[in-house]
């Protein structure tokens, strides 16, 4: 099956004052792929995905999502078209219950709240938080808050799920569950993963994009990236 392009970015650039954080990046993501985005700290990864989902406006360039030019669309409109973004720094509604957190993610696509309870239960169940719906989100442990964040991503049933450092602060056992979870999610969504944990990247990703100094340094399969000299020098430390 020839892969359809879900998301493409051409010439994406972003300046902060005199500093160019993202420089002329071309990026293409086919539907159904698990893509990892790696690079050293300050390489511009988070800025780049923030440009993709609309939290930041690009200084130049064009973004097409599902065949539509979304460059000028505000973040909420892009999310409504099927992107989902989970935050690097856990960003949940700490004062609300788990139910309300996930319901907020799910209710937008459900007409008149129909089947909302079931959708929330399903999303919580998939991340292993079933039965905790009435707890207050802020009372959860850090690892569980990360899982809730992912449940909120799932509940949106996105076409593209952007995960910004999802395994940060998780234990080894939790990371294994996470890998299995992402594999199952990938059956009906495209995944863009910013990740520092190389084991997670090499296990999950079908293709890897490497960024450095705001530009794309290399792109390829995990095997190709491992073999790439430039990547090793810039990033993996030789």
């Amino acid at each position: 099956m020839a892969a359809v392009t879900l998301l493409s970015a051409t010439g994406i650039t972003r300046d902060f004052g005199g500093l160019r954080a993202v420089d002329q990046v071309d990026f293409e993501l086919p539907e159904g792929q698990i893509r990892a985005l790696i690079g050293p700290n300050g390489a511009g990864k988070t800025t780049f995905v923030n440009l993709l989902c609309g939290r930041l406006a690009p200084s130049a360039g064009r973004i097409v999502f599902a065949g539509e030019d979304v460059t000028r669309l505000p973040a909420h409109a892009r999310i409504a078209r099927g992107m989902a973004y989970t935050f690097q720094i856990t960003s949940i509604f700490a004062a609300l219950s788990l139910y309300d957190n996930v319901a907020l993610a799910a209710q937008r696509r459900l007409a008149a709240g129909e089947g909302l309870g079931a959708a929330v239960a399903a999303a919580l169940g998939r991340v292993g938080l079933a039965g905790r719906a009435d707890q207050t989100a802020g009372d959860l442990s850090y690892g569980h808050q990360r899982l809730l964040e992912i449940a909120m991503g799932l509940a949106q049933r996105p076409r593209l799920l952007i995960l910004d450092e999802p395994t940060q602060g998780l234990s080894d056992a939790e990371i294994e569950d996470f890998i299995a979870l992402i594999r199952s999610v990938a059956r009906d969504a495209t995944i863009l993963l910013i990740e520092h944990n190389m084991d997670v990247v090499m296990t999950l990703a079908e293709r890897i994009t490497v960024m450095d100094f705001g530009a794309v340094l290399a792109e390829g399969t995990p095997g190709e990236i491992k073999a790439d000299r430039a990547v090793r020098i810039a990033y993996l430390g030789g």
Binding site: H76, I92, F93, A94, R108, M152
Partner: peptide, 24 residues
């Protein structure tokens, strides 16, 4: 109502509400 839930979400964390697709 679900609308009320969104209003409360905006009070609690406006950026997150926006990134769940709501026109804040």
């Amino acid at each position: 109502s679900s609308t009320g839930r969104v209003l409360i979400a905006i009070r609690e964390n406006e950026d997150r509400a926006r990134m769940l697709g709501y026109d804040v």
